[in-house]
Each structure stands twice: as structure tokens, then as C-alpha cells.
């Protein structure tokens, strides 16, 4: 595959899509949300176990492309153990990283006081593939739905 594609289909992403670590059901979940992309029929559902304002566990069921599946799985890993507020801050930073045309160094070292993207970092390559941004945002749509009624 060509270079730019390799960039997007980073091995970490492909590997993650092939063997997701956070896929499945979460019987103890007390929140859930779903994201759907009507253009392609992709769907991801998040189950969240919330204790107070802390996300103790997340599981997802994703029927989607490699980017969407990896994004859901990475979201689950990154946000496990976060407070709702932190989770939202990570989301804001992720969204910002998807629209910036800045060099990767700036994306990688966030301004002070903002949370790091951590394991989600490779997904930011999608910013050079506009048509695919919705794929990695879908799990975040599901998260937003899950957290609708949580007041911080």
C-alpha cells in the first residue's frame, strides 16, 4: 500500500480492529449509547459502568470498518478509569486533533492542562482523509448519547 494509506492504516489500528480488546457486552453497565452512520450502515454501541462520576468499565459492540472498530476500542481503553469530565475533555481534544492541519508533533504534545490522547494517537492520521472522519467519530457520538443525562 502507498505511504499515506499506511499512515492511516497504521499497524496499531489494523491490529486493534482485528483483535479488539474491549469488544463485547457489559452486564453491569448502567449507561449505554449508540452511534449510527446512515451512509454506510455502520453502528457502534457503548456500554458503560459508571460509579459516581467515574467510568469504571466500557465495552463496545461495533459493526463497522477498521477505523471505526479501532476507534471504539481505543476509546474504551483510554476512557476506562476516567471521570466523566476527563472523558469529555479527551473528546474535545480528539475533535480538535481531527480538524487541525498542524504537524503531528503539535498533535502529540498537547498544551498544558489538556489530557493526552494516549492510545488513540494513531487515529489522528484520519485528519488527512476527510471522508473518513465520521468513522472514528462514531464511538464518540455513542458516548455523547450515553452521557446525555449525566450532570457533571
Amino acid at each position: 500500500m502507498s505511504d499515506a494509506a499506511q499512515d492511516l492504516y497504521d499497524l496499531q489500528i489494523v491490529e486493534r480492529a482485528r483483535n479488539p480488546r474491549y469488544a463485547g457486552d457489559l452486564p453491569e453497565a448502567n449507561l449505554s449509547g449508540e452511534g449510527r452512520n446512515p451512509l454506510c450502515g455502520d453502528r457502534t454501541r457503548l456500554d458503560i459502568a459508571l460509579q459516581g462520576y467515574h467510568i469504571s468499565q466500557i465495552r463496545h459492540r461495533t459493526r463497522g470498518c477498521a477505523l471505526c472498530t479501532a476507534a471504539a476500542d481505543m476509546l474504551a481503553e483510554r476512557l476506562s478509569g476516567c471521570s466523566v469530565e476527563e472523558a469529555q475533555a479527551v473528546g474535545v481534544r480528539f475533535s480538535a486533533a481531527l480538524v487541525t492541519q498542524d504537524a503531528i508533533e503539535q498533535v502529540e504534545s498537547p498544551p498544558e492542562g489538556t489530557p493526552s490522547l494516549g492510545v488513540m494517537q494513531p487515529l489522528t492520521a484520519v485528519r488527512f482523509h476527510k471522508a473518513r472522519i465520521r468513522c472514528v467519530e462514531l464511538p464518540w457520538v455513542a458516548l455523547k448519547e450515553a452521557l446525555t443525562h449525566v450532570r457533571v
Binding site: M1, S2, A4, A5, L8, Y9, L39, C40, G41, D42, G64, C65, A66, L67, C68, H129, A131, R132, C135
Partner: peptide, 19 residues
């Protein structure tokens, strides 16, 4: 997934539709 196929085909200059 068709989206992954379409993106990778595109990187090779090949335009198809997926969805």
C-alpha cells in the same frame, strides 16, 4: 469493510463507491 477497501483503492488511484 467496504470503507477500508475504498480508501485503500483510492490511495492507489482507483475510485469506487462503498456504502
Amino acid at each position: 469493510h467496504p470503507h477500508d477497501i475504498a480508501t485503500l483503492l483510492d490511495r492507489n488511484g482507483i475510485a469506487v463507491r462503498a456504502g
